[in-house]
Write a protein that binds this DNA or RNA. Structure first.
Length: 732
DNA sequence: AGCACGCCGACT
DNA sequence: GTCGGCGTGCTC
């Protein structure tokens, strides 16, 4: 039960009505009577009766009216009210994503009462006479506490080199006095002048533009595009500094995994203190405090994952979206939204500038920049004399490795050279496990997931076959389940586990580390491995997508992309864009301060646009081509696209409903309904998902069409769920 | 989202 | 007989 700190006065139903949004799947506000004399304002968090229970809600609007037959607001909750800007943002998100208003509101509501009340912290200071029994430990404590300052018990114990028992003993004798400590500040105060970075002329020009945008105190969007190592972060830090000088708040959104100690350290080096962090790993006590401190304006800079977007900033002066192109900005559960786009909407409401930063901006952002809707700044050079790695393709049709092997002679030669020079190589292969397909040499049987259309991936280490789509796991048998032949099962294709075997054969005395997200040992082990790599304790690193982001590999001079074609044949219209972004990032890891690195791409399609763009460094031509394809297909950002997702625990039921919806679509001119596919999209937590795509021409009202459709479609039985995802880009 | 109400099968 | 499974619908 939520705590009701500010009770609403008792009284007869008054002359005011409050429209209140409750955090449940309702698509409108409910009206409640405001008790006479109650001090209520729009945005206040209140407790209201809802059916047989009580719940919290937010006052969306107050109006005059009798409301005689309405239930009454029960009380006001003592948490920061939800500001006008946040309420408008939520209205917009609910309209845009077609999510029920209550669920959209939930994104910004911190349900109070979950968190314990602020604990009073106790400190001690020297107050009375020394005790009669003076021991060596006690003397050290008294010496350490000299000067009358207040210390926490633990702090003082550590300074004096004693245990807490000695401190408590001295409190009992009256030598030390316990005093209430003011609550610890939630975050330090960043100082814009602490340690400004020395910027290159390119960086300085970009920083000046951003500073001016912040000083203008109006909405604008600026794309900062710069290759890995070009110093984008230093540049947008100058925008943060300007917001601080203006006394305003700044929000830095980043993909959760990019919120590393390394980033916080860089921020602290520039501003003298770390920013307030906001992500799923933050404890609920701290969340509550941060929430209040952000509302009061005490916290100036928040670095956070996508949900930080809904913090109650009182004076937001800047929003930075780092790694703008990252798919992690897409919220896939509950209310479906794209944090980058919502950040832009929030900034528009708050009249604040937005900075989008990326080495490989997304197509939609490029198009917006090209159309003049966003400012576009390019940082062309690597900072500190680092140059981009040299790129070379290895045509696998001509330089094929031995049968059952995956490393071509040129790549092996490069690895040998690198090793001889005492430097590190990275082999990148975006495939977990041992082999992506297992088949029977006798009858041709292929192991397929019973739920999805995907092949089962062998994980030899776990002696299992795993579906990377839905998580289905089965034991790897010794004989074929189809024809019964013993020992006829063959692993086809490489995964990182299998690659590691091959590397050890070629380099028996090299120190090899394999990094993959499903690796045993979890985050802890991963961190240790990364530290070991940074310390030069590995010669060859084998990794999946994991190695593309965040972490620094200072000794790395060679990157070998084992199969650059992975992902190009997936049928996703963004396959090329994503592959380009990923390979650009991974190959960009090669190179040290003193000399450039090199990257080798093993590919069967050296003439593919992605490979051509990587080799020539001409991203502009590649993106022009991508845009043309999208435009011709009427895909975003040139057309609008939504997905209708039907899910049910029973596969047949889900599919039948999806087909029925497709038949009843009655799409008007300019709107196409595509699908559903024969096989389910995925099996997630026991539910089969089928999908319809709704494609609309440029100017048609996708939301209006979908709303009308939902309204006239009979409600399906409860076990069948229909959700709509109108994210402009991330629909696969 | 909760929570109650209601309609069906297996038990002390 | 009734306890309780879940499917359905409502909440100002």
């Amino acid at each position: 039960m939520p705590s009701e700190n500010g009770a609403v006065n008792e009284g007869r139903a008054g002359s005011r009505i409050a429209d209140i949004v409750v955090p449940v799947a309702l698509d409108k506000a409910y009206s409640y009577a405001v008790p006479a004399g109650a001090a209520l304002a729009e945005g206040d968090v209140v407790v209201v009766p809802l059916g047989p229970r009580e719940t919290v809600g937010v006052v969306w609007a107050l109006r005059e009216g009798a409301g005689a037959n309405l239930k009454s607001v029960l009380g006001r909750v003592d948490v920061p009210p939800m500001g006008e800007d946040l309420r408008r943002l939520i209205d917009w998100i609910a309209w845009y994503t077609l999510a029920p208003l209550g669920l959209a509101m939930r994104l910004a509501l911190r349900i109070p009462g979950e968190d314990r009340a602020e604990q009073v912290r106790v400190g001690v200071r020297l107050a009375g006479e020394p005790p009669e029994r003076l021991t060596a430990a006690r003397l050290r404590v008294i010496a350490a506490a000299e000067g009358g300052l207040v210390y926490t018990k633990g702090d003082l114990a550590e300074r004096a080199g004693v245990s807490l028992a000695v401190i408590n003993g001295l409190v009992d004798t009256g030598t030390l006095e316990a005093v209430a400590l003011p609550p610890e500040p939630v975050a330090g105060l960043p100082d814009p002048e602490h340690a400004p970075a020395a910027l290159s002329p390119d960086q300085e020009r970009a920083a000046a533009v951003l500073r001016a945008a912040v000083a203008e105190r109006s909405f604008s969007v600026t794309l900062v595009e710069g290759v890995t190592g070009s110093g984008k972060t230093e540049v947008y830090f100058e925008a943060v500094a300007e917001a601080l000088r203006q006394g305003r708040q700044a929000l830095i959104l980043m993909p959760e995994i990019a919120l590393t100690a390394q980033f916080l350290g860089r921020f602290a080096a520039r501003f003298g203190t770390a920013p307030a962090e906001w992500h799923s790993g933050i404890s609920s006590r701290r969340r509550e405090r941060l929430h209040r401190a952000v509302a009061s304006g005490e916290v100036k800079v928040v670095a956070g994952a996508r949900s930080a977007l809904f913090l109650p900033f009182s004076d937001l002066g800047l929003v930075v979206v780092d790694e703008e192109h990252e798919q992690a900005y897409k919220q896939e559960e509950g209310a479906l939204y794209h944090a980058r786009d919502m950040a832009i909407v929030r900034a528009r409401i708050d009249k604040a500038p937005v900075v989008l930063a990326s080495a490989t901006p997304s197509v939609e952002t490029r198009v917006n920049a090209a159309r003049g809707r966003y400012r576009h700044l390019v940082l062309p050079e690597r900072f500190g004399g680092r140059t981009l790695p040299t790129m070379r393709a290895i045509d696998m049709r001509k330089k094929a490795p031995e049968r059952g092997r995956w490393l071509s002679p040129p790549l092996l030669a490069a690895m040998r050279e690198t090793r001889a020079a005492g430097e590190q190589s990275l082999l990148f292969l975006n495939r977990r496990g041992y082999a992506p397909l297992t088949l029977c040499r006798s009858c041709g049987h292929r192991f397929q997931c019973p739920n999805c259309s995907a092949w089962l991936v062998e994980h030899r280490f776990r002696r299992a076959l795993v579906c990377h789509h839905c998580g289905h796991v089965e034991r790897r048998p010794d004989n074929c389940p189809e024809c019964g032949t013993v020992d006829a099962l063959a692993a086809c294709g490489p995964g990182v586990e299998r690659l590691a075997e091959e590397v050890v054969e070629h380099f028996p005395d090299a120190r090899v580390i394999t990094l993959s997200s499903d690796f045993p040992g979890g985050i802890e082990r991963l961190r240790r491995e990364l530290e070991a790599i940074a310390a030069g304790e590995a010669d060859i690193i084998i990794g999946t997508q994991l190695v593309a982001k965040g972490h620094n590999f200072p000794q790395l001079t060679l990157v070998g992309v084992v199969d650059a074609d992975v992902g190009l044949a997936s049928g996703d219209p963004r396959a090329s864009e994503r592959t380009f972004q990923l390979l650009q990032q991974v190959t960009g890891r090669a190179g040290r301060g003193d000399r450039p690195g090199r990257a080798l791409l093993q590919t069967y399609q050296p003439d593919h646009p992605v490979m051509r763009a990587l080799l020539s460094g001409d991203a502009a031509a590649f993106y022009a081509e991508e845009e043309a394809v999208r435009e011709a297909a009427g895909l975003p950002p040139f057309g609008r696209l939504a997905a209708i997702i039907v899910s049910a625990p029973d596969r047949g039921e889900a599919e039948a409903h999806a087909r029925a919806l497709a038949r009843s679509a009655e799409a008007p001119e300019g709107i196409d309904v595509l699908g559903p596919a024969e096989a389910p999209l995925a099996l997630i937590r026991g539910r089969y998902r089928f999908r319809l795509l709704v494609r609309a021409a440029r100017d048609s009202d996708l939301q209006g069409y979908l709303r009308a459709w939902i309204a006239r479609t009979p409600k399906p039985p409860q076990r069948i769920r229909v959700t709509v995802d109108v994210d402009p880009m991330s629909f696969m």
